[in-house]
Design a protein around this nucleic acid. Structure first.
Lengths: 335, 335
DNA sequence: ACAAGTATTGCATTCGTATGCAAACATGAC
DNA sequence: GTCATGTTTGCATACGAATGCAATACTTGT
């Protein structure tokens, strides 16, 4: 029982003009006299006419649509990033087509749908892109910008924060504060951000002549991080400091230490996170962490994507934005 | 420098068949022989052909797209709801067009864009719908389902949790635990969910012969809730219990009481929230709250929307799903 | 080999809007 | 009023795929 929608032709008939005239009333730059415009708009109002974006997209060959691929929407960092991206693109007259993928990065089906959807650009938030798809995007000159994820394929732009140096700082700082049994809690083994944070961290420890006491993996999830914490503290001597690959897991560590092991942070164990999500600043945690410039990252990525769409084919860019250590009080000896 | 995309006609030419044949290879139910299908698929593979969804939508008059309007994506409750909705619709072969609106509910521009986008249905998460737009959706027989928001217009379906009885329970429970100076912390004044929670709460208090000690408004935001808490505890006698309209604010209350007033929860002040977001169960808070059946709400709403799309025009439904009190230890005297 | 039936194919048209082109019109200078 | 210039308008076509219809190619039974 699909109700037939009002077309520009019907409006034209009512207004006594041609369909072209109606069309021109709805394209900002077209040439149309005030008199006919008024007639047309009045007729359109009467009929409840609205231009059909799909038909418009077909003829202009531009969908004004961006595909956004997100994983980990449960992580506030990415929820907030998505919100910002949406704001940006809405203001530019673009629509967002949302695709959620699971963490395991099975983007197969989704990528096909994106390519068929005629999106003009692809924004990837914390989701990986299989190399063949990256190549296909390049072939079709569909710009892709990834936030916080890298792909080993040329032609794709990337905006990340300086994960390596963030990890590096965390390592140095923990050593400087006198820790010696320092553990690392990684996120997803497949994530490049986690890998760089880890690398910087381990390099820093090595530089200081300290070796990593233990490594665990928490998949960026609260419950997995709790379990990892239990494993780390199962037998003495336990770590005296933990660097977690994101805040979400760092909080889980703190909660678990306090409630299950009766350990205090930072008196017994120091904890550092990564991201500086709002939770990190809550008084209960006051988490020392590495701040990613979230807003700047998403603004940069969005701007970049838009530029590449407009300029046809810009050469891809790899940007790394600086991180900022945020010293609170989850590491002992902080001022 | 828009690269021309491969069309079904080109594939047809290469495969030595008609464009119709190519089209039929990509519609599951069409009649096509295995031989030509193979030829066509091979040609399509060689050229990297992908059917153009926009053209398909135009001719079939179905966009297979749902518009999702969200506000408060920073609230994990809605981020998780969105994630679930996305999962559901992706599985059904629908795409999600995402629209974020600010809390003040200025949906003007956005609603126009949605109507022009040819979305087949509209899912509203915690966002209100201006009455004229609701009417226009009804006129065009575009189904609308709202989650946790009501609109005073017939024709729109609504799925909510039982906000009234949730608030009612909170009121009764606080009185039963011996509280007498009970305050209410509302969310947005414009939100219908908050209004019902408040109403149930006040009715319960009245029933018990207790009057509400104070009311404040926290706009569902952490910092606003902190400020409201400061106002509530500015002068003695201060409340001995607070019911916050959602968990997010309840947590803010607890954090503020502990860090700024040195008050303990629940020994000095009891706190109840609403939603049962993951944070509520963290050991640091162990928040007594009213659980909304989040997954069930979104599943119901999505199913409903899809039914209404498929059956043309189903009569709109108002569903209220039961809430479940979750007693933890942020109210004194809990077992 | 033939008729009748079925399965596959191509032709032509359609969806709703945008736009190049040429015709029609308005404006202004003289 | 005439001509030149500039503005508006309608016509016709295009975008890329889906589909009713008629034509053709296969089956199968005899």
């Amino acid at each position: 029982m699909k109700k037939k929608s009002v077309t520009s032709r019907e409006v034209a008939q009512l207004a006594g003009v041609s369909q072209s005239a109606v069309s021109r009333c709805f394209s900002p730059k077209a040439s149309i006299s005030k008199k006919t415009r008024d007639k047309v708009l009045e007729a359109a109002r009467q009929l409840g006419y609205r231009p059909n974006t799909i038909a418009r997209s077909l003829i202009t060959r531009s969908s004004r649509t961006i595909a956004v691929v997100v994983s980990q929407l449960d992580n506030p960092f990415y929820a907030l990033t998505l919100a910002k991206a949406s704001e940006y693109f809405q203001a530019e007259g673009y629509h967002l087509l949302l695709f959620l993928v699971s963490d395991d990065g099975n983007t197969e089906g989704v990528m096909s749908e994106i390519l068929e959807s005629q999106a003009e650009g692809i924004l990837m938030l914390a989701a990986s892109l299989a190399t063949p798809f990256a190549q296909e995007c390049v072939d079709r000159s569909i710009p892709v910008v990834m936030i916080n994820r890298t792909v080993d394929s040329a032609g794709v732009s990337q905006v990340s924060s300086d994960n390596y140096h963030g990890g590096h700082w965390a390592g140095r700082y923990l050593v400087a504060q006198g820790h010696s049994r320092i553990a690392f809690l990684n996120g997803l083994p497949t994530s490049s951000t986690g890998a760089y944070r880890r690398l910087g961290f381990l390099d820093a420890l090595a530089l200081e002549g300290v070796s990593c006491w233990a490594e665990e993996c928490g998949d960026y999830r609260f419950d997995k991080a709790s379990e990892a914490t239990r494993r780390l503290f199962a037998k003495s001597p336990y770590p005296d400091a933990i660097f977690a690959a994101n805040d979400h897991m760092a909080i889980a560590v703190i909660e678990t230490l306090r409630s299950e092991f009766g350990l205090r942070v930072p008196e017994d164990v120091s904890v550092i996170g990564f991201d500086d999500t709002p939770v990190a600043s809550w008084p209960s945690f006051h988490l020392t962490t590495v701040r990613q410039p979230r807003e700047e990252m998403v603004a940069t990525a969005s701007r970049l994507l838009l530029e590449q769409i407009r300029e046809g084919q810009l050469s891809p860019v790899q940007l790394t934005l600086p991180v900022v250590p945020v010293i609170r009080s989850s590491v002992r000896g902080a001022v």
